[in-house]
Nucleic acid binder design. Structure first.
Length: 465
RNA sequence: UCCGAAGUAGCUCAGUGGUAGAGCAGGCGGCUGUUAACCGCCGGGUCGCAGGUUCGAUCCCUGCCUUCGGAGCCA
């Protein structure tokens, strides 16, 4: 059984102990003193372990000096204090077994040098071997663990909402169709339409764009629930902040209003980022040094800050009073554009801000109508450097109001019968929010393109690997 | 989808209307308890694809493809 390199650096392996490590060669440096230095990484932590391979090894001339980046090895030897600078301990190898060679090292795509992120996307099956993608992967894992830990500690239950949804109306975004019909030979109704009664589910089905409506049903029984899973949008978005497949976190809180929702969001963000800083120091230091020098101070500032609250109406007044020239003119009733959000969070508040109570006409049907009948209890949390990071709302718990909103939006109440039932049987005020998981990773690491924080990005015309 | 930019060696890039170079990587040799080391030599390219202009195009023009940045949509 081999030892993970992370345990070695964590001091859990005493100097003098014989260990086996297994991993991949990052670099090899030969010394005429009669030994080679192998940087071996197993991905368990940021740093590779230095393995010292003396020329006395029986396969030194045949194997060790032929090692190149990417070769897999099993090294057995004694952990010793390093004689060189740059590391405190190293492995003095008794054996270096080559598990797998690299065919044609000349064209091995992952060289021990800096690659562009664009290039790495083209070799998505090999890019986890790089420092940056390895670090992203560990950060992503730690944040995901922190998400679950936060909700667990707060008494929330993780509800696995469906990926495939046959609801007639999700109400948000364009959806990917799920069908087993033969596209070359579609069944038709007498009226000439595609006959989805012949399809697998007997009706139209799609990939989910949000688990919210489903999770609300469990909220009306278990009080505190959340979803955390993949969601899909078939929109032709080509930006560094959008994916066709991304992971979303959506908590739902019963007996709660918008203020409680905003507080939950604030506590949540602070918890997951604090956990990240506590548990992934090595990787975060790499991001600070090579990707975004402000990433750690940005997270620290957020953790220590008190999120501001700002009414939408006040936000509009602030934007107008700034006399700043915006590409999109500002007036009450508009949806805030990227430039407006950035201005508010980066120049006015200079920190995270929850903007609340948006005009009803620019928000979804399920958001709770405020007493003014002009605004709904919606919120967006804006953060410097990224803009909107969380969107949420108090849900409309009054059936008559919900029905009125459904009608106003040109939707059909009949399509939402199970959702309406929640308002007929023991309805309660409740609220929730949605967080795009990859956006949180962008914010934490300073990585610029969302395609670099998910292992296999899905975007328009991009579904390789 | 709209606006802008870019596609030259395995990678990162320079360059020219007369078919091309550097650094890194790779191979060989030298040197060193080395730190993405250093020194020397060597191999390696349909200059994104398709047309057009021209005696001649990698360079100029047109179209297409791909990628990047911004916007919209949104998380």
């Amino acid at each position: 059984m081999s030892t993970r390199i992370a345990l070695v650096f964590a001091g859990q392996v005493p100097v003098g102990e014989k260990v086996t490590i297994e991993g991949w060669i990052r670099t090899r440096r030969d010394s005429k003193a009669g030994l080679s230095f192998l940087a071996v990484s197993d991905g368990s932590c940021f740093d590779p372990l230095q393995v010292v391979a003396p020329q006395e090894l029986t396969n030194y001339a045949t194997d060790v000096v032929r090692l190149t980046a990417g070769c897999s090895v099993r090294c057995i030897g004694e952990l010793v204090a390093s004689q060189g600078k740059g590391q405190t301990v190293e492995l003095r190898a008794d054996t270096v077994e080559v598990v797998g060679w690299v065919d044609d090292p000349d064209t091995y795509p992952m060289q021990p040098k800096r690659h562009t992120m664009e290039y790495l996307r083209e070799v998505a099956h090999l890019r986890p071997r790089t420092n940056v993608i390895g670090a992203v992967t560990r950060v992503r894992h730690t944040l995901a663990q922190a998400v679950h830990r936060f909700f667990d500690q707060q008494g929330f239950f993780w509800v696995h909402t469906p990926i495939v949804t046959a609801s007639d109306a999700e109400g948000a975004g364009q959806m990917f169709r799920v069908s087993t019909l033969d596209l070359e030979n579609l069944p038709r109704t007498p009226a000439g339409r595609v006959d989805f009664d012949k399809d697998f589910f007997g009706k139209e089905a799609h990939l989910t764009v949000s688990g919210q409506l489903n999770v609300e049903t469990y909220c009306m029984a278990l009080s505190r629930v959340y979803t955390f899973g993949p969601t899909f949008r078939a929109e032709n978005s080509n930006t560094r902040r959008h994916l066709a497949e991304f992971w979303m976190i959506e908590p739902e809180l019963a007996f709660a209003d918008l203020a409680a929702d905003a507080q939950l969001a604030e506590d949540f963000l602070k918890f997951i980022f604090k956990t990240l800083l506590d548990e992934r120091k090595d990787d975060m230091q790499f991001f600070e040094k090579h990707v975004d020098k402000d990433c750690i101070t940005r997270l620290t500032a957020m953790i220590d800050s008190k999120f501001e609250r700002m009414d939408y109406t006040d936000a509009i007044a602030t934007l107008v009073a700034s006399n700043k020239k915006f590409e999109f003119p500002v007036s009450w009733g508009i949806d805030l554009q990227s430039e407006h959000e950035k201005f508010l969070t980066e120049e006015v508040v200079k920190g995270p801000v929850a903007v609340v109570n948006y005009p009803k006409d620019i928000k979804a049907f399920y958001m709770r109508m405020n007493d003014d009948e002009k605004t709904v209890a919606a919120m967006d949390i804006l953060a410097p450097g990224i803009g909107e990071i969380i969107g949420g709302s108090q849900r409309e718990e009054r059936l008559d109001m919900l029905d009125r909103r459904i009608t106003q939006m040109g939707l059909h109440a009949g399509d939402y019968n199970w959702y309406r039932d929640l308002r007929r049987y023991g309805t309660v005020p409740h609220a929730g929010f949605g967080l795009g998981f990859e956006r949180a990773i962008l914010y934490a690491t300073g990585i610029e393109n969302i395609r670099d924080v998910i292992p296999f990005p899905r975007a328009p015309r991009q579904a390789e690997f």
